[in-house]
C-alpha cells in the first residue's frame, strides 16, 4: 500500500493552512459544513476546527427518516469532541412533501433530492452565519463521480478533494477522528444497509491503488495490467472517471463573443485576494 501513504503532519499543515487562508482572505472567519457521521465530513470538521477555531465552525446533521440513527450519533460524537457549533435539521418534511407529488420516484432520484436539499440548507446557513461552505468530497469520490452534482459536491472550498479515501483514513487517524467513525463501512446512508463499496462493486482501497497509478502517475492500460490490475476492473473504473467528468466541470457555455467566461475570460478565483 506504499504509494498512497502520506506524511500526515505535512498534509495536515497544508490543508489547515488552506482552509485558514482561503476562508479569511474573502473577509469572513467562519466555515459551514454538513456532518453526516461519516469519515470525510468528520475529517473536514477536524481540519476546519484547527484552522478557524471550533467556535467558528458550524456543522449540521440533516437526517431523513430512513437515515441510520447511528450516523447522527457519530456526527454528534465528532461535534462534541471538537466543541464546534452543531445543529440537527431534519429534511424529512421537505423531501416527503416533494415526493408526495412524484410517488414513483426511484432511489436515485430520492437520494439526489436529499443531497440537494442538504445543499440548500448549508448555503442558507452560510448566509446566516456569514461563512463559507466547506466541501467534503474526497478525490476517489470525485474521480468516480460518486456524488450528487449541485448536492454534496457543491461547496466554496474543499480541503480533501485532492486526497484519496485511503489517505482520508490515514489523516483521520493522525488527527484523532473518533475510532468508531474511522472503522465503520463508508455509506451514503440513503437507505438501510447501503454501503459505498457494495454499490460501487469494488473496495476503496483497490480503487485508490488503481486511480493513483492511472491519474497521478498516468500509467497506460498496458502498464496497469503489468502492475497486476484486472483489465475489467481497469475498464470499469476508467468508464466511471470519463462518464462522470461533466460533474467536475462548470456548465458548458455556447461561445459567440470574443471573451467567453472561462474560455478567454480567465481569472483566478482569488482575483484581488
Amino acid at each position: 500500500m506504499g504509494v498512497l501513504n502520506v506524511n500526515t503532519a505535512l498534509l495536515r499543515k497544508i490543508l489547515v493552512g488552506f482552509v485558514r487562508d482561503e476562508v479569511t482572505k474573502v473577509g469572513v472567519t467562519k466555515g459551514v459544513l454538513g456532518l453526516s457521521g461519516g469519515i470525510d465530513s468528520a475529517l473536514v470538521a477536524f481540519i476546519a476546527a484547527e484552522a478557524l477555531g471550533p467556535e467558528n465552525v458550524y456543522a449540521y446533521t440533516m437526517p431523513y427518516r430512513t437515515s441510520n440513527p447511528e450516523s447522527e450519533a457519530h456526527a454528534k460524537l465528532v461535534a462534541d469532541q471538537l466543541g464546534i457549533n452543531y445543529q440537527v435539521i431534519e429534511i424529512t418534511p421537505m423531501v416527503d412533501a416533494y415526493f408526495n407529488l412524484f410517488p414513483d420516484a426511484n432511489n436515485m432520484r430520492r437520494g439526489n433530492k436529499m443531497a440537494r436539499e442538504r445543499m440548500t440548507i448549508l448555503y442558507d446557513h452560510s448566509a446566516e452565519v456569514r461563512g463559507l461552505v466547506l466541501g467534503t468530497s474526497n478525490k476517489t469520490e470525485l474521480l468516480l463521480g460518486y456524488g450528487t452534482l449541485h448536492g454534496d459536491m457543491a461547496s466554496a472550498l474543499n480541503p480533501i478533494g485532492d486526497i484519496y479515501k485511503s489517505q482520508v483514513w490515514e489523516l483521520s487517524e493522525a488527527m484523532g477522528v473518533p475510532r468508531a467513525v474511522i472503522d465503520k463501512k463508508p455509506s451514503a446512508d440513503l437507505w438501510a444497509g447501503q454501503t459505498d463499496e457494495q454499490e460501487l462493486g469494488f473496495t476503496y482501497r483497490d480503487a485508490d491503488e488503481l486511480l493513483y497509478r492511472m491519474v497521478d502517475q498516468r500509467m497506460s492500460r498496458d502498464e496497469l495490467i503489468a502492475e497486476g490490475f484486472d483489465p475489467h476492473f481497469i475498464d470499469v473504473v476508467h468508464t466511471k472517471v470519463q462518464g462522470s467528468h461533466f460533474k467536475r466541470r462548470l456548465p458548458v457555455i455556447a461561445k459567440v463573443s470574443h471573451r467567453t467566461i472561462d474560455r478567454d475570460f480567465r481569472y483566478s478565483r482569488d482575483w484581488g485576494k
Partner: peptide, 11 residues
C-alpha cells in the same frame, strides 16, 4: 507551488 505529497519528509 508545493505538490507531490508522499511518505517522505518534504513535498
Amino acid at each position: 507551488p508545493g505538490r507531490g505529497i508522499n511518505e517522505g519528509e518534504g513535498l
